[in-house]
């Protein structure tokens, strides 16, 4: 997993609520057996019509908006547990998703892959979206170490929550599996004492 410390980037606005993982990556693109290449089909059915022609008014097809930060409406990533959704966002080039609310499994999957789910208040989200609408080149700064973010050149800023363990993993690029493997003895002891039917 790649380390994530700070990011400064313009952002892509997607002010839609309840964006589910079937939209992020439709099921028919889950047939691959590796983790690569999912970015191509990110938001497939919003990006392309039935004849694979780009849908012009979808934001990813609008060159005005670009950058490694996605700003989305509340309850982002609901639905299926498919980690392919995270791989697709990451493969496309996103490193941070900002929303006022994330679905649980998505949040976990994101952090296991070096993608930061940054939760802000609804008011902050509206301010960020407004700033991007006014100026698509608006740059957002995110500092994971200090758990702060701001919209550069504007008085829009805030802090965000992340638990200490996950923060350490993201900053250092560690997977949970490394830590779990180090607990071999404790797990063995647990198994010995467990009553299970």
């Amino acid at each position: 997993m790649e380390k994530l410390k700070t990011i400064t980037s313009s952002a892509v606005p997607l002010p839609i609520e309840d964006v589910d993982t079937d939209q992020i990556i439709p099921a028919r693109f889950l047939k691959a057996v590796t983790r690569d290449g999912f970015g191509e089909n990110l938001f497939r059915d919003w990006r392309y019509n039935n004849n694979d022609v780009e849908i012009q008014d979808f934001v990813l097809n609008n060159p005005t908006y670009h950058g490694s930060i996605l700003v989305a409406g509340k309850n982002f990533g609901c639905g299926s547990s498919r980690e392919h959704a995270t791989w697709a966002l990451y493969d496309y080039g996103f490193r941070v998703v900002i929303s006022s609310f994330f679905a649980d499994i998505f949040r976990g999957n994101a952090m296991n892959n070096g993608l930061l789910p940054l939760q802000v208040s609804q008011e902050e989200l509206d301010q960020i979206l407004m700033a991007i609408e006014k100026d698509p080149e608006t740059s957002i700064y995110v500092n994971l170490e200090e758990q702060v973010w701001n919209v550069e050149g504007k008085d829009i800023q805030g802090t965000f929550h992340i638990d200490g363990y996950k923060k350490m993993c993201l900053l250092n690029g560690y997977d949970d599996i490394d830590y779990l493997l180090s607990l071999k003895d404790e797990i063995k002891t647990f198994e010995k004492n467990q009553v299970v039917y």
């Binding site: 547990s81 498919r82 980690e83 392919h84 995270t86 976990g108 797990i187």
Partner: peptide, 20 residues
């Protein structure tokens, strides 16, 4: 509960998960 593929690998390898 449902998990992502990274966690599938963790359970395969260690029978454990790190959860809040």
């Amino acid at each position: 509960f449902g998990i992502g593929t990274s966690q599938v690998e963790q359970v395969m390898a260690t029978q454990c998960l790190i959860l809040d």
